[in-house]
Design a protein around this nucleic acid. Structure first.
Lengths: 242, 242
DNA sequence: CAAACAATATTGGATGTCCCACCTTCTGTT
DNA sequence: AACAGAAGGTGGGACATCCAATATTGTTTG
């Protein structure tokens, strides 16, 4: 048997049973020593093995898919998935939008966490940054400046700048988390109106961050990153106060 | 109509359709100006409103439940939920266990992120910490020391110590993230054996962190936190090398 | 009149079945 | 040998049916 408690008639709360089923599936993956990319049993086989109906199993599988544990390919099969935080981003975005209607607490919390991560890790990132990676960062800055001069928004280049800044750390989890925060911030930004006024100033802020990084001054880079986040925080405040 | 694209016959990938359905539900919540705790329509009403079958709707609802967007109470109804990151913790725990079987990259990444968060935010937390909160931190340390003297492990007190350290920031997102990281670390720890050897030394490390915090020396506190994480990282290395 | 209890309505939980859509693979024709 | 189409297997989805949990309502009883 793959696990415990499945056949028990004890009446856990429904939520607990769903969680248990998810855990059973994950245990099954671990017990069978499946790796990322390996195929899982079919839905019918799994439902039989775990002693639940197919629809019930599917509910758990969809949750695991959302959590990035399994990858489901229609007409082909189910597989152990590589990490995927997209659904998490959706959930957080919803939270952020919900909170923005009031005091925006959660949106500000998110900025605080992002600030702690970026300011706290910029030093290590600079240690490991190669010349090529540094050049990539500058390329992003240049693109932001060009777009700003043309009066175009540059969300994509902005995101790329921050991503490239921390690529040297080779930390997929960090990159994912920052991507999540970015996605949430972007969605909130779209929601509440553009704030497209200070394009060139925003580009200049990023230029200054780049210069500090290029100059190897960790403290200055961290400080300028902090300043950048103060600006973001200010924009959120403006939206809330309105 | 609450949203777009539901009735479209265009064949998106199945995954995209599921995501769209989740987004539809969230949009519905936002459009109706529902607050946390407010009730959602019943499953049948929702299925009808969104033009999908009840099972399909349920799959999306379970995902949203896992993401902490909705709360489902058997026999009572569904409600807009307060934040809940439990399922995220499960997913990350799975990832960590999966990766530990190989090089443990993801486990190490997780420690790095946690270190950045704690070291980066300890200063702000100290600024806002009240005398009562400081006393609570020391109480956790004392309990760890007592348990260490008795030869008992103290995972709970350890978690409490870190949680209390950052309570002053009033950042629910941060607390949740740290809780997730803690849960993952704890599960991994259980998985690979106890490492119960250095109990008193571990307690002493926490005592030194507390002393730095109590003394108001932010740099020292950050440094000692970093040292603490170096120890954790070392333990993970031991497990992998074996 | 009030408190305790029981019946009931409403809600989500779970399953089985049927059919559709998609992907891969095999196979047969050109 | 190469391409096209058929076949088999997989997940996707919708119902219908029944089970289980909860709150409410109504009744009984002190």
């Amino acid at each position: 048997m793959t696990t415990s408690g499945v056949a028990s008639k004890a009446r856990f709360s429904a939520q607990a049973r769903l969680r248990a089923l998810q855990a059973d599936i994950m245990d099954l993956i671990l017990e069978r020593e499946l790796e990322a990319g390996d195929p899982l049993p079919t839905e019918n086989e799994l439902a039989l093995a775990l002693g639940v109906g197919r629809n019930t199993l599917r509910e758990s599988l969809k949750v695991l898919q959302a959590l990035g544990v399994v990858e489901i390919r229609h007409g082909f099969g189910m597989f152990v998935a590589p990490s995927n935080f997209d659904a998490l981003a959706d959930g957080m975005t919803f939270r952020g939008r919900l909170s923005l209607r009031h005091k925006g607490d959660e949106a500000l919390e998110l900025v605080d966490v992002r600030q702690a991560l970026e300011s706290g890790l910029i030093g290590s990132a600079m240690d490991k940054m190669t010349a090529g990676q540094l050049a990539a960062v500058e390329e992003s800055v240049t693109r932001m400046e060009e777009l700003a001069a043309a009066g175009e928004p540059f969300v994509e280049a902005d995101a790329e700048f921050h991503r490239r800044l921390f690529e040297p750390l080779n930390n997929a989890l960090l990159i994912s988390l920052l991507a999540v925060f970015w996605k949430v911030y972007r969605q909130i930004h779209l929601e509440v109106g553009t704030g497209a006024e200070n394009l060139s100033e925003s580009a200049a802020v990023h230029r200054r961050i780049y210069e500090a990084v290029a100059g190897g001054d960790k403290a200055l880079a961290a400080e300028r990153l902090n300043h950048h986040f103060d600006g973001i925080r200010h924009r959120i405040y403006e939206v809330i106060e309105k």
